[in-house]
């Protein structure tokens, strides 16, 4: 994902803006990292360039 996606997406639970922490980048593409909601404290992983914005209770269900 590109950093500009932060202008569009938000926390799926409380719709607050998210903060980005980058682990790995390729040019302007963020390959891995973490999105954190400063309001509720929930974190959302970015893996293989795709942010996983599923509510936490659904993560296991979908990735299983």
């Amino acid at each position: 994902m590109k950093e500009s996606l932060l202008d569009i997406i938000c926390c799926p639970i409380d719709k607050h803006d998210l903060e980005l922490e980058v682990d790995e980048k390729d040019g302007d593409e963020i390959i891995s990292g973490t999105l954190t909601c400063p309001e509720c404290g929930e974190t959302y992983p970015i893996e293989d360039g795709i942010p996983n914005l599923l509510p936490p209770d659904m993560r296991d269900e979908v990735t299983a």
């Binding site: 996606l5 569009i8 938000c10 799926p12 719709k15 914005l53 599923l54």
Partner: peptide, 16 residues
Amino acid sequence: ACALSDARRLPLPNAS
């Protein structure tokens, strides 16, 4: 641009 999400709880603000 993509986002893994549940259509019932979208990671998008109101009127956006």
